[in-house]
Design a protein around this nucleic acid. Structure first.
Length: 875
RNA sequence: GCCCGAGUGGCGGAAUUGGUAGACGCAGCGGACUCAAAAUCCGCCGCCCUUAAAAGCGUGUCGGUUCGACUCCGACCUCGGGCACCA
């Protein structure tokens, strides 16, 4: 054994050992319990960032721990290889996305190997491989057959200068990112997946995911947004009927959850895209301008929700379904075409948005619900949240004096009788639009024939292969300009036809990759029998930012596969761990009138200024130093220039130090603050562990441990070691708090360092303690532990070692320290035998001198004894 | 705007089911070793008042429940994630 720790040599040796033994390649083994441990696959952006290191280290710790517990552990890895950044790179440097992506994958794979993850690389896949995405296409065709996939128009961001569709990310302050032109909305035909068909099931099944974080389930439930309400038809007045020229339309249909407020309706409002708005705009230029104005701006919900509530009357009317009153119909920008019917009934007295709108437009406010406690009888001039509460109906004709449930029931019945309403469940969840007008994605397998219409590509012609030599230039999809791609013959009539040039949303790729890992080489089918052994995923690890979309789409896609008989489970991920972001300090400098520049914290030096406050400086290229501003902590990102390159970290300290620091600095669900000093602390601990083993081994092999013949301090160290075993297993296996598991091993090493005992028994106890420390830390720092395990004289490889049971005899305690409080304040401590009963503990507490001082001569009113912990004396 | 989180010493964090607030680490201070520095080892380290001890105060703010609250409840403030075409 080397006297000093050489991370590079230790890590190379361990990785070569694992590679030669193919330690992490796994097969189905029905005799052993399986554990499928999966981290979200990365987008191959070029290099790993610290978020990846954190994500994959968490997964690796869990995978290695479960392996030690005897599970047959699968930990695969792959690449979410389609997406926008490859096109952006192509625009700026002319390299085809395929080449850029594959180079990035090669580089990042090497980085991952250097970090020593226990990955079965034989299962690696990339979503840009035709052998993978052909099954996206195959399943899409099955969905098309069943009506789960369908075509309709949808709204997109349109850059009028580049003549291209923009992603939300490419819209900055309502303008195109490259052209700066104001973005417009445009309706184009797109493919949708009918996820709302599964809305009810996706919502209910959340209850069957007890090992998902509560907040993720809540977010998904809110996203699905099931609400029970009523669909109400307001019959057209003559003016609206005339304008619409649609005899089939009986009236304006709205959805409401508050049909109890029906008598408070003073106006109706429709979205700018609603057919009535279009019809009314034909004869009213001002309204046409307003509708046109609503079409400008982005399609993002956050923008729509924060914009000023504007509206304009259509001049048309519809009739109240029960009173026949003529109600004005407005166009309002806060009504969304995508939700419900694209029209709402306006009840200013009992809905905050309607109240704001009515106040601004001078529309009437009619109170129809009052609280049971009589706290108000009339809605006032300023909005109060209580106005939206359920209460008792008033001013509602024959429906007065009813509570919410009663009013809903009777009013709905009255509407049903007239054929103007019915109960309905409405979801906030919308169908999933998967068409992207982009090149670097999975082609949608349909053909447009002038004679036959839209024709699915026959299965035997799959995959529709994406050509890999095209280079996007920012002016639209190059597939749409590539005759070699789009010119084809119709599979039905054999005539000339045009291939669909839209590609699929990359969320499709990531909706089932975890299933394919079970059988990455299956050629004849999407999945095969091996899936039944490995799936569902036992532990999924990834960023909280995926809490809704990716996880919901995966749950949906899995159900579609289930209904097609491809898999037999409904939920793909049994346990979910959502890791927090990695943060670092942000430093910037903005010259007057110039552009703000960011500086990496590694370049910034801190010193005390004349007044004692911190001054931050960087060395300027030309002369002297430049004073920069500390903006606080921010997510590590290219744009803030505050990233830490894992590569240089591994080169400087080794993979184990990188892994140890990221696991120790904070619990996985919380944000992680980068700290160079913390990294050094992690490196220091590994050196200390190495030195302790080196020193111990240098004294020769100790004799076998005789547990029954130990001194007090020897028993104490042994107890600490076995307690550590229990705590680390619980912290890693149940709590996923790796930071406290590591702290426990640090405490054990501190105890070993204090254990200054050269006797045979003392050395035997130390030997056991060091073995336990190395074993317990091995999921986190596998390389150095691999070497130390050998140094401690083990015949077996650590990677094949089992997690030992703690020795109950070693854990046993003879006496306990009990805390004594007087009126809830800590006043003393007493030591009692471990078996002492409540009366003994109580007597010992009351007899304690410190305690008696605080009791003085006051009568004891009550004594609370918490067994094994504390006594509280109340006076 | 809507939905979901988080706030504890100089710093990262610990306190697992309502029961000792500050484990472990970082930084700092003092000491040992060294010609010296680095590394390493030992000790101290919430605030306040103190020679010291003891007392008092203390988990974003305000209020409540309880013998007892970082933990539960209500209101507020600040920071972060998501909002359907970034992944």
């Amino acid at each position: 054994m080397q006297a000093s720790y050489d991370a590079a040599a230790v890590e190379r040796a361990a990785q070569e050992f694992w590679a030669a033994r193919r330690s992490f390649e796994v097969r189905e083994d029905p005799a052993r319990p399986k554990y499928y441990c999966l981290s979200m696959f990365p987008y191959p952006s070029g290099r790993l960032h610290m978020g990846h290191v954190r994500n994959y280290t968490i997964g690796d710790v869990l995978a290695r721990f479960r392996r030690m517990q005897g599970y047959n552990v699968l930990q695969p890895m792959g690449w979410d290889a389609f997406g926008l950044p490859a096109e952006n790179a192509a625009i700026s440097n002319g390299v085809p996305p395929a080449r850029w992506t594959r180079q990035n994958i090669d580089y990042m794979r090497a980085q991952m190997r250097a970090l020593g993850f226990a990955i079965d690389w034989s299962r690696e896949l990339a979503t840009c491989d035709a052998s993978y995405y052909r099954w996206n296409q195959w399943l899409f065709l099955r969905m098309l057959e069943r009506g789960i996939a369908y075509r309709r128009t949808g709204v997109v961001n349109w850059d009028p200068v580049d003549q291209t569709v923009l992603a939300n990310e490419q819209v900055i302050d309502g303008r195109g990112w490259r052209t700066g032109a104001p973005v417009e909305k445009r309706e184009i035909p797109m493919y949708y997946l009918n996820i709302t068909r599964y809305g009810e099931e996706l919502l209910r099944a959340l209850d069957g995911l007890p090992e998902w974080p509560e907040r993720v389930r809540v977010m998904q439930a809110n996203w699905i947004g099931r609400s029970e309400g009523c669909e109400v038809t307001f019959p057209w007045s003559a003016d609206a009927r005339a304008a619409l020229c649609d005899a089939a339309s009986p009236g304006l249909r709205v959805f409401t959850t508050r049909v109890d407020t029906l008598f408070g309706v003073t106006f109706l409002a429709v979205a700018a895209e609603h057919p009535l708005a279009t019809a009314a705009a034909r004869t009213r230029p001002a309204l046409a301008d307003f509708v046109e104005a609503c079409r400008r701006g982005s399609v993002m919900e956050a923008d729509l929700a924060t914009q000023e509530k504007k509206g304009m009357p259509t001049g048309l009317h519809a009739q109240h379904p029960l009173t026949g009153e003529a109600l004005p119909v407005w166009v309002a920008n806060y009504v969304l075409m995508g939700y419900g019917e694209g029209a709402v009934m306006g009840v200013p007295a009992h809905d905050e948005r309607d109240f704001e709108f009515a106040t601004r437009q001078g529309l009437a406010v009619r109170t129809v619900v009052v609280p049971a406690d009589g706290s108000y009888h009339e809605v006032g001039a300023a909005w109060q949240p209580a106005y939206a509460d359920h209460g008792m109906t008033v001013n509602s004709g024959e429906f007065c004096g009813l509570d919410f449930d009663g009013a809903v029931e009777r009013i709905t019945a009255a509407l049903e009788e007239r054929g103007l309403g019915r109960r309905r469940v409405q979801f906030r969840l919308r169908d999933w639009g998967i068409s992207r007008q982009r090149y670097w994605g999975c082609p949608i397998p349909v053909i447009h024939c002038p004679a036959c219409g839209t024709v699915p590509v026959p299965d035997e012609q799959l995959p529709v292969v994406l050509p890999e030599d095209l280079v996007p230039d920012g002016s639209g999809n190059p597939l749409a300009k590539s005759a070699a791609f789009y010119v084809c013959t119709c599979p039905k009539c054999g005539g000339a036809a045009r291939r669909e040039t839209d590609t699929m949303d990359t969320f499709v790729d990531s909706s089932w990759y975890y299933t394919r890992y079970a059988c990455p080489d299956a050629r004849a089918a999407m999945v095969d029998a091996r899936v039944a052994y490995w799936l569902p995923v036992d532990q999924y690890i990834g960023g909280i930012e995926h809490a809704i979309l990716h996880l919901l789409y995966s749950r949906f896609w899995t159900r579609v596969m289930r209904d097609l008989g491809e898999v037999s489970f409904s939920e793909p991920f049994t346990r979910l761990l959502t890791q927090g972001m990695v943060l670092n300090h942000v430093y910037s400098y903005q010259p007057e009138g110039g552009r703000k520049r960011y500086f990496n914290p590694a370049e910034v030096r801190t010193r005390r200024g004349a007044d004692g406050t911190a001054v931050y400086e960087v060395a300027a290229a030309d002369r002297g130093t430049l004073q920069v501003v500390h903006e606080g902590l921010g997510k590590m990102s290219k744009s803030s220039g505050n990233g830490v390159d894992p590569q240089s970290l591994v080169e400087r300290y080794g993979a184990d130090t990188a892994r140890l620091f990221t696991m120790f600095a904070s619990p996985p669900e919380q944000t992680l603050e980068w700290s160079d000093e913390g990294v050094q602390g992690a490196a220091r601990f590994i050196r200390r562990l190495w030195a302790a083993v080196y020193e111990h081994v240098g004294a020769g092999a100790p004799p076998p441990l005789q547990p029954s013949a130990l001194t007090g301090p020897q028993r104490e160290l042994r107890r600490t070691a076995h307690q550590t075993l229990v705590k680390v297993a619980d912290d890693i296996g149940r709590r996923h708090n790796f930071n406290t598991a590591i702290a426990a091993v640090m405490e054990l090493l501190n105890a070993v360092a204090r254990h200054d005992d050269g006797s045979d028994a003392g050395r035997a106890v130390r030997h056991e303690a060091l073995r336990i420390a190395v074993l317990a830390l091995s999921p986190v720092t596998p390389h150095v532990c691999h070497a130390l395990w050998q140094a401690l004289g083990s015949q077996t490889a650590l990677v094949d070692e089992r997690w030992p049971q703690a020795d109950a005899e070693a854990l046993r305690q003879d006496s306990l320290d009990i805390v004594v409080q007087v009126n809830g304040k800590l006043r003393g401590r007493v030591t009692v035998p471990a078996q002492a009963d409540e009366a003994t503990v109580r007597a010992a507490a009351l007899a304690d001198e410190q305690v008696r001082r605080f009791l003085a001569d006051k009568p004891v009113r009550r004594v609370i004894v918490v067994p094994g912990k504390l006594v509280n004396v109340v006076v």
